[in-house]
Nucleic acid binder design. Sequence first.
DNA 1: GATACTGATGAAAACGATTACATGGGTTAC
DNA 2: GTAACCCATGTAATCGTTTTCATCAGTATC
Lengths: 332, 332
Amino acid sequence: MVTLRAVAQASGVSVATASRALNGLSNVDPAKAQMIRDTAASMGYVPNAAALSLRRARSGNIGILYDDEIFHDYYALLLNELRVETEKAGYDMSIVSRIMEEGGSFYSHALSRNLDGVVIMQADFRSAEIVRLANSEVPAVIVDCDFKDCNVVLNANTESMEELVDRAYRLGHRRLAFIHGQHGNATDTRLSGFYKGCAEHGLTVGRDYVIQGVFHDKESATEATGRLLDLPEPPTCIFYPDDTCAIWGMKAMKARGLKIGRDISAVGYDGIRMAEMVEPTLATWKQDYRAIARRTVEILCYNIENPGTKTAYQVCIRGCFQPGESLGPVSP
Amino acid sequence: MVTLRAVAQASGVSVATASRALNGLSNVDPAKAQMIRDTAASMGYVPNAAALSLRRARSGNIGILYDDEIFHDYYALLLNELRVETEKAGYDMSIVSRIMEEGGSFYSHALSRNLDGVVIMQADFRSAEIVRLANSEVPAVIVDCDFKDCNVVLNANTESMEELVDRAYRLGHRRLAFIHGQHGNATDTRLSGFYKGCAEHGLTVGRDYVIQGVFHDKESATEATGRLLDLPEPPTCIFYPDDTCAIWGMKAMKARGLKIGRDISAVGYDGIRMAEMVEPTLATWKQDYRAIARRTVEILCYNIENPGTKTAYQVCIRGCFQPGESLGPVSP
DNA sequence: GATACTGATGAAAACGATTACATGGGTTAC
DNA sequence: GTAACCCATGTAATCGTTTTCATCAGTATC
């Protein structure tokens, strides 16, 4: 590790001058500055991040927090965009999960690591720990969970569900079912959009038509789909908590010999890549991953660069309907 | 940020004693030590990682390096397991991609960030930069590329392709085609396994039956599949560079009215989750993501904890065949 | 009772950078 | 010719830890 001191010695100047030259400060003789920069480059000098971080209480690191299961497509896609944006903004991205907790906490971890800011991407939003972190002095942005007095970037769950219902309605569907995920912000807002959309068209939603499932889960999707299809008056269109569930659901439909898009329709959520790969292609709601990441990092950076001014942005990213063969006109 | 000095003052001892107490060193009065620990806890003291890192030239950070496209399932799954393992080993995981490069390099980035070690997960392995990093004093493990004198964790590409060919052969397939990815370690070793497997069974492989495609790419998979099916004597079984390509290929087959698993067989690679979700399910080679990650981190940690002893482990992770409906007996 | 030893504690250096302040030579102004 | 000023440069403090070394009281040994 070649230090600034070494560069200074090699250049025959003090560390102060070397530092100034390398940082391009004005008050140093241009010729000498160039010489210093050259020697630094030739020696392969790179500033020590730890020293910098110590000196200016800034680490240049942004932490991405989540519980687990990063590999689901939604998270993978989002994470990828977050990485692009954080790097664009000049930060490194550390992903921190829960496993390391042996008495440690997200909050103290953030503090100890000097994380300049954190993105809470997926977590048990009801845990005291998350609440503490979100309301602490550490700049934070929460994705897809509506926290009071915090920066949140939300998906327009209610509006999107409404639009999906509307699209189904306009294709003639009148008996709509919704298999939703575990309760929480995302599910609750989606449910609300679902009911709202139905109400707007004067559709009654039977109690049996709304089933709680499990996000990304094969068994639950298969079972719930079966239960709906067994109803005396089965739905003509089923909404799923996410694309993965929808695809498993479609498998269950096919297994019963139903022709998807004609006998029955299926609608996913998230717009993962698989949606266009399955057959039939899955109609779904495509999240705008790039926009989510961009706004998240934007807000986070603003909070980092303006310490003291705690903001509470509430941004909503809409996304858009992604057509697919799985949603067809209701058969007469 | 509550510092050690503050804790020491509050406890009425020197920072040295406070440090010793918190680190559980023996030479401090037990009662006093407990008192110090209590005050530290009550004040919410957390050690400053930057200071630690500066003091002990260790950051507790492991860097995961790759070019881009982290969101493909293979990388997402691997990344997830890597995270689990690094956290188990007590490290944080930073993902570093290429975008930040504005004259900066992976190598100097690793140096400046005090990264204790790096995993080179995906990159242009021919670039001078990667070669320099891999051969530098920074502990490094390379995944799925065979570097001389470096720690590498490889997939048993040759053996797995051989086994896949053998399985197809035993199902009666005699005309095997291989759409492979861009050249590089993975592709070359797979090709070698493919030819070896064919040779063992005395199969001749026509020049037209081996096509260079593009990893994870829809267009290339579709086009190459079409080209193979248009041959006067089309293959009875097509191997693909990865599952994504195989799935697109299957779509092309279906589009021609072929019944997959009977008229034609398709075999993927990687064993991503989508493989069991498509219809027909995709026969593929399932990577042992957990084992890859475990060994990678294990070797990396060994190198970190034994500085100076540069190892050059060559570990091979086998994975296993994952059956699927897409590979069936050849029709008579 | 003097000497050596032990064990707890504190003072201070060190890690590698930035930066406030001091210094000193050269220029300008009267 | 002297005062005032400017600009380049160096000295040293600082960030929060760990750790070496010194100190000092108490105890054991002869």
